[in-house]
Design a protein around this nucleic acid. Sequence first.
DNA 1: TGTACATCAGTGAACGCGCGTTCACTGATGTAC
DNA 2: TGTACATCAGTGAACGCGCGTTCACTGATGTAC
Lengths: 193, 193
Amino acid sequence: MGHSQAEKAQSRERILSEAATQIREAGLESVSVGKLMKRANLTHGGFYGHFESRSDLLAKALERALVDGEATARASAEPGKRRSFAALVRSYLSRAHRDAPESGCAIAALVSDVGRAEHEVRAVMTPHIESYIELVAGELGERDESAAIAAVSAMIGALALSRVIVDPKRSDRILQAVREHVLAMQEDASAGA
Amino acid sequence: MGHSQAEKAQSRERILSEAATQIREAGLESVSVGKLMKRANLTHGGFYGHFESRSDLLAKALERALVDGEATARASAEPGKRRSFAALVRSYLSRAHRDAPESGCAIAALVSDVGRAEHEVRAVMTPHIESYIELVAGELGERDESAAIAAVSAMIGALALSRVIVDPKRSDRILQAVREHVLAMQEDASAGA
DNA sequence: TGTACATCAGTGAACGCGCGTTCACTGATGTAC
DNA sequence: TGTACATCAGTGAACGCGCGTTCACTGATGTAC
C-alpha cells in the first residue's frame, strides 16, 4: 500500500468522482461512507482524512457532479461548430441522456432533492442554474431572458419527467415535444424581434 | 384508547395524510415508520396493521400526495369560472406554491426522486403526469399535444428550480418568466392555428 | 336487554442491521543530517 | 549517497444510534345467545 502525497490526491479524486456519479444515479441520500470508500478501494476509516463529514463530501460531490454534467453537455454540443445550440438541445433531450443520469446533468437528476435541502446545498446548485440560463440566453437573443428561463425550465423539466414515465414511447414523446418546442423558440428568436 | 373499526379507518387516514405531507416536504426517504406513527399519535408497532411494509406505505402516500396536490391546484383555479386556466397557471407558479411544497404539487416536489425509483413507484406517478398534460392540452388546443407537453415541462421545471435558487428575487423571476411564457402560449393557441 | 366470549386495534419490548464517526495503530514516505 | 527519524495515508475494531420489522400482550369492541 502506497501512501504518498500524490496517491492521497488520487484517492480523494476517486472518492469524489465516485460520489458524483453515485448521487446522480441514486440521489444524495444514497451515499454511505462505507460503501463509497469500498468503491474507491479504500476502507471507511480513511474517509475523514479527506473530508470533514459526510455532509461536507455531499456538497463537494454535488459541485463535482454539476461541473461534470456541464462538461458532458458541452462535449456533445461540439463547441465551436455552428448549429451548436441545436446540437446541445438535441443531446440534452436525448434517450441516451435520459438513460444515463449518472454521467448527465446533475440539475435534472437532483432538482427536487436539492430544492428541499439546506441553504448551503442549494447555494452549490444555484450558480449552475444561472449559468445554464445565461448560456441559453446567449443563443435566444440576450434581451429576452424570459424565453431563456422558459427554455431551461422546459428542458430540465422534460428530462426529469421522461425518467418517471414508465411507457418508453410516451417518455420519448416528452423529449421529442420539448426538443421541437425549444428549437422553434430559437428560430423565432433569430427571425423576429 | 378506542379500538373500533371506525377509529381504525381514521388512524389509517391520519397515517396516510401525514405521510403524503411529509414526502412532499422532505422526500420519500425522509419517512421513518417510528416518527410517522408518532405524528399520527400512535406507536410504531401498530403500523403493520395498516400497511404491509414501509415501501407499501410509500407508494400509497405518493398516490395520496399526487391526488391531494391536484385537488389544491384545481381549487385555486376556481373551476367553472372562465379564465380558469390563467388562474391555474398563476397559482401553480406562485410564491405561495413554491413556499408550501407540503401541500402542493407532488410531481414538482418529487420528480427527481421518483425518476430513479423502481418501476412500481414510477407507475404511480406516470398517470398523474399524463392527466396534467391532458388538462393543459384541453386549454391550448387539443391538436397540439407538443405545446401542452412543453408547457407542463416548463411549469414543473420552473417550480422545482425556483425552490433551489437561493436569491428570492431570482427565484421569483423564474416563476414570473415561465408564467408569462405559458400564458402567451395560450394566447397564441386561441389566436392562430 | 344482559351476559359471555371472540375479535382485533393498538402497545411496547426486542431483534438484527447498517449507519456516521472516532481512534489506536501500521508501515511507507520523505526529510534532515 | 546513506542512515535515522518524523510524518501521515490508510486500516480496522469499536462506539452509540436509529432504523424496519416481529411478536406476545392488553383491553375495548362488537357479536351470539
